[in-house]
Each structure stands twice: as C-alpha cells, then as structure tokens.
C-alpha cells in the first residue's frame, strides 16, 4: 500500500515463497512477513496474490501444508517445502542469477 513498496516482479513470487520456506515451515502471514524481511521491506505480498500462489504451488507438488497450532493458539495452516520444492528453488535461483547478470551487463554496455 505504501508507495515505496515495489510490487513483486512477475514470476518472482514463486521464487520468493520457496526461499522464505527454505529454513522452516510457515503460515500465510508468516511467509508474507518473511518476504518483507528478506527484501528489507522492498516487496510486499498481498493476500490476493499470496494465497492463490500457495495453493497453486501446493498442487504443483512443491509445497505441502498441514494444520497446526499457531503462536496465539489458533488453528493455522503451515506450508513447508517438499524435495521437488527445493529442486525448484535451486533451479529458479540459478535462472534468476543468469537473468540478472545478463540484464546488468546489458545495462552497463554503452
């Protein structure tokens, strides 16, 4: 909502979600907050994008979800990476590296 928060680049949302779940399982708001933290507040994921992405990725087999107890003792849905999810994160990271390098070079060229 705040003007200085950039919307996530098309296609990078999946990667950011996978990255945020790399260490531990998390629920929706947790993922959202983790992405903000990882990007030092640059990216803000709206629930309208987050939930569809989570469900889609779960159906892809990259995430699994389970119901558990939250910090405030509520029933919450937690997501964690599967092996396929980790592989996907790796390949996306590599792809991103290649793209950003290429773009950086392109922009440096005179």
């Amino acid at each position: 909502m705040t003007p200085d928060q950039t919307n996530l680049l098309q296609g990078t949302l999946d990667m950011m979600i996978l990255k945020s779940l790399a260490l531990d399982q998390m629920h929706g708001l947790g993922i959202s907050r983790r992405i903000e933290q990882l990007t030092k507040g640059t990216f803000h994921v709206k629930p309208g994008s987050l939930f569809p992405a989570l469900h889609r990725m779960e159906e892809e087999g990259w995430l699994v979800s389970s119901w558990g107890e939250s910090e405030n003792n509520r029933r919450a849905k937690y997501y964690r990476l599967t092996r396929a999810g980790r592989r996907q994160l790796e390949s996306e990271t590599q792809r991103w590296g290649r793209i950003s390098l290429a773009i950086a070079r392109a922009l440096e060229a005179s």
Partner: peptide, 29 residues
Amino acid sequence: RMKNFFRNIFAKRRNDGDLDDEVHFYVDL
C-alpha cells in the same frame, strides 16, 4: 495434479471450509 483434481471436485466442501479458516486466520493475525 490428478489427485488434486479429484480432491478439488469431490472434497469441495471441506476444501472450502479449510480455505475460509486459512484466510480468516490471516485477517485475525
């Protein structure tokens, strides 16, 4: 995907209930 497909069609109500809980939890939190 096929498993999901059938679950989505046949366990629609439970899925929807879960989804409702999930989103509400998000708002509450």
